[in-house]
C-alpha cells in the first residue's frame, strides 16, 4: 500500500525540524548540550529561533537542529580537510567561510552545499606533493618515534611487521617489538574567542601597536599542548607562532590590521589538522575627549 505524497510531505517537514522545551534555569548552551550534544550549537539555536538574547524563559519551545546539522557538519569537516590539504585556494577558502557562516546561522542545507563546493575547489587546487616526517631515537637507542607531518604515509618496519603511518599519526617502536598501530590522530581544536571577524579596539602604545588580544579555544582530549599561528591577512606573514600548554594565549601588541589565526592540538599522537581559521581586526580605540566646562567649551 502506497502512502499518498500529500501525507508524506508534512511528516518529512516535521521530521527535519526538532523542537525542545527549555527547562527551569536552563541556559541556551545547556539546551544545546542536551539536545544536540554540543554546547557550541547554542548560537545556531539562537539563530534558528530568531532570538536576540541568551536568556530564554523556562517552558519555551525552541526549534533545535536535527539530522541536517549532522550532515552539514560532516560536509564541513570533509571540506576543511580537503581545503587544508590543498593549501591556499582563495575560492575554496571563500566557500568554506561561507559554509561556516551558514552553519552558525543554522542554515544547514546551505552550509552543506557551500561545504561541498569548497571541497570540490579544494580537490581541484594543486595539492602539494612534498613529504615530511620526523624520526626520533632516544639517548639509549631503545625506542624510535616516527611522526608524519605532511604528504603520503611512510612505512615503518620492525620485527618483520610493516605499518603505514599517515599524516598526523605518530608511532613509537620499542626495540625488539613490532610497530604498534598508530595512535588515533588528534582532532583539531575548536576556536573560541574572539568570534570570527570580530573588531577588537585597543588603546595604542607609544609605538602605535595595539593589544593585548587573547585567543581561546576548546581543549582537545589527548592534547599535551597547542600550536598557535597568527598571520597578517594582508600579506600572509606569520606574526606569532608558539606552542602553549593552556587553552588560551595572550598575543603581544600588534599593528592595526586584519589577522587570521589557527590552532593545532599537539600530543603523543602527533599534531592535529589546523582548526578552522578565525579572523579578527585590530583597530585603535578612539580616545574620548572631555572638554572642561568653561570658556574653552
Amino acid at each position: 500500500m502506497r502512502m499518498p505524497l500529500f501525507l508524506l510531505l508534512p511528516w518529512l517537514a516535521t521530521a527535519a525540524q526538532d523542537t525542545a522545551v527549555v527547562g527551569p534555569n536552563e541556559t541556551l548552551r545547556q539546551v544545546a548540550e542536551r539536545t544536540v550534544g554540543d554546547a557550541a550549537a547554542s548560537e545556531e539555536i539562537k539563530a534558528l529561533n530568531g532570538l536576540s538574547s541568551d536568556t530564554v524563559a523556562a517552558g519555551t519551545r525552541l526549534k533545535v537542529p536535527g539530522n541536517d546539522r549532522v550532515l552539514a557538519r560532516k560536509a564541513l569537516e570533509t571540506a576543511r580537510t580537503l581545503v587544508g590539504d590543498a593549501g591556499v585556494s582563495p575560492e575554496a577558502e571563500a566557500r568554506l567561510k561561507e559554509a561556516e557562516a551558514h552553519f552558525r546561522a543554522g542554515r544547514y542545507s546551505q552550509a552543506s552545499e557551500a561545504a561541498n563546493a569548497a571541497g570540490k575547489h579544494g580537490v581541484r587546487a594543486p595539492t602539494p606533493q612534498s613529504s615530511a616526517f620526523s624520526v626520533e631515537v632516544g639517548a639509549d637507542g631503545g625506542a624510535t618515534i616516527v611522526t608524519v607531518s605532511r604528504g603520503p604515509p611512510v612505512r615503518v618496519e620492525a620485527q618483520g611487521v610493516t605499518r603505514p603511518v599517515a599524516v598526523g599519526e605518530s608511532v613509537r617502536v620499542e626495540k625488539g617489538s613490532p610497530p604498534p598501530a598508530p595512535a588515533t590522530p588528534l582532532v583539531a581544536p575548536r576556536p573560541g574567542l574572539p568570534e570570527d571577524g570580530e573588531l577588537l579596539k585597543r588603546r595604542p602604545d607609544k609605538a602605535g601597536r595595539l593589544g593585548p588580544v587573547k585567543l581561546a579555544w576548546e581543549a582537545v582530549p589527548g592534547a599535551e599542548r597547542y600550536a598557535v599561528d597568527v598571520a597578517s591577512e594582508s600579506d600572509g606573514a606569520s606574526v606569532f607562532a608558539q606552542d602553549v600548554a593552556a587553552v588560551d594565549v595572550k598575543l603581544p601588541v600588534l599593528p592595526a590590521g586584519r589577522y587570521r589565526w589557527t590552532v593545532r592540538a599537539v600530543g603523543p599522537a602527533g599534531r592535529s589538522e589546523p582548526s578552522t581559521a578565525r579572523r579578527f581586526e585590530l583597530a585603535p580605540e578612539q580616545l574620548k575627549l572631555e572638554v572642561m566646562k568653561g570658556q574653552w567649551q
Binding site: S131, F133, V135, V137, G141, G142, A143, T144, V146, G151, P152, V154, R155, V156, E157, A158, G160, T162, V173, E174, K175, G176, S177, P179
Partner: peptide, 16 residues
C-alpha cells in the same frame, strides 16, 4: 634505519 625500526618514505618502498 634506527636501532629498532626501518622507516621508508617516497617512491622506493621495499617490504622486508
Amino acid at each position: 634505519t634506527t636501532p629498532s625500526a626501518t622507516i621508508q618514505a617516497g617512491r622506493e618502498i621495499v617490504f622486508q
